Amino acid sequence: MSKIVEGLFAINKPPSISSAQAIRDLQRVFNTSALFAPWIEAERARRDVESQRQRKRRRDKRIQVKIGHGGTLDPMATGVLIMGVGKGTKRLQNFLECTKTYEATVLFGAATDSYDTKGKLLRRAPCEHVTRAKVEEALKRFRGKIMQRPPIYSALRMDGKRLYEYAREGKEVPREIEERPVEVKELEVLEWLNAGAHEYSLPEEEAEIEAIYLAEKVLHLGDSPDVPGKEEMGASDREIQPSPRAKRKRSLDDVEDEVVTNKRPTLSQEATDPSTLMSGALPANGNEESPESHPLKSSPEVKAKDPSFVPAVRLRMNVTSGFYVRSLAHDLGEAVGSLACMCALVRTRQGDYDLGKNVLEYGDIEKDESVWSPRVEALIEASQHSIES
């Protein structure tokens, strides 16, 4: 039998696809390739000798190249995504514990339910006073060993249920999302982007009133005295209960600190598909809220300004496992007396894999096998020492 190729390599994930979709794309190509044909044959032979009981328990009867990833990237994010093939999937857990380097762009002037510009607007806030100097000063409190509260759109469990499931169903979490210790080894400003001098813009879709009510508790927007619109939420608004009937699309591929493989998926297809729905819209009584009761409409001096005319900052950070860049963006907005959300993210390094050095360009897998096969084989071969150790 020809050589069985299995081990580790990394790809440069493009934007707009989930990490789970990246696995499916690679499988589609690898399943019919000459490079992984020996692996397919070995797997077929192994299944032929397995017990009848194991065959019945096997959910997926198809034989596909076993692929997993170690450390999810949000769909909007790009950069290093480490992949394991065959026995290489057993080593993916190691990469969740290593440091990662990110370049992120933070947009000031608003907060969203997802902490990034793919979510719905919860609140807007003045940001004319935000300068590079103020950001540089605020970043001091985020360096070193700090406590960070994960976003509601995360796969962390609370009472056996993932946080994003509470958000998707429009339900309050049973208790406060606790802060966790993380370490920021390096954090610096790469570029300051003046308002009107960049391509980024805040989302236009606004959250419903009950989503904003939940945000007061879950996202701690109500903790900031500088956030306009806080006092305008009346008692009647606070009594509104979320309706699980109204849905909205939201990609839920945030599985930080968890290895995902195609063998034993930890998330359902519904939860990882870009068409996953989250609850939203109408108040419990079925009536639309009045303009005066909506925090996004309650601050005329903010609404009168062009919402896209806001500053941004590009940051580079080297962080430990469990760190959420979106949480940093959200917290930085409050630290400078405004609001903020993440609008771009690139993972430039994870473990020993560096973007532009030993990372496969994603577009190469759509080319002829003669283009990508030697590169993939060389990268996997270089990882063998970690597989055998």
Rank of each mutant, 00 (worst) to 15 (best):
A10C: 06
N12Q: 13
D25E: 12
S33C: 05
A34D: 14
I40A: 05
A42W: 10
A45E: 14
E50S: 08
Q52H: 10
R58C: 00
V65M: 07
V65E: 10
K66H: 08
D74F: 00
L81G: 09
I82V: 13
V85Q: 05
K90E: 03
K90Y: 06
L92Y: 06
L92Q: 00
V106R: 02
F108G: 05
A110D: 02
T112N: 01
R123Q: 04
T131F: 05
K134C: 04
L139A: 09
R141V: 09
S154H: 09
L156D: 02
M158T: 04
M158V: 14
G160K: 00
G160N: 13
K161S: 08
R162L: 02
V182A: 07
N194G: 05
P203K: 10
Y213Q: 11
L214V: 03
V218Y: 08
L219G: 03
K230T: 02
M233P: 05
A235C: 05
D237F: 04
E239Y: 04
Q241T: 10
R245S: 08
P265N: 05
A271W: 04
T276Q: 07
M278F: 04
A284D: 12
G286L: 02
P291E: 03
E292Y: 01
H294S: 06
E301W: 01
A304I: 07
D306S: 10
D306I: 06
A312Q: 03
V313Q: 07
G322D: 04
V325M: 00
S327D: 09
H330W: 14
H330L: 11
D331F: 00
C341F: 00
Q350T: 12
Y353K: 07
L355S: 08
N358F: 01
V359D: 14
E366L: 10
S370L: 11
R375M: 11
R375K: 15
A378T: 13
E381R: 14
Q384R: 12
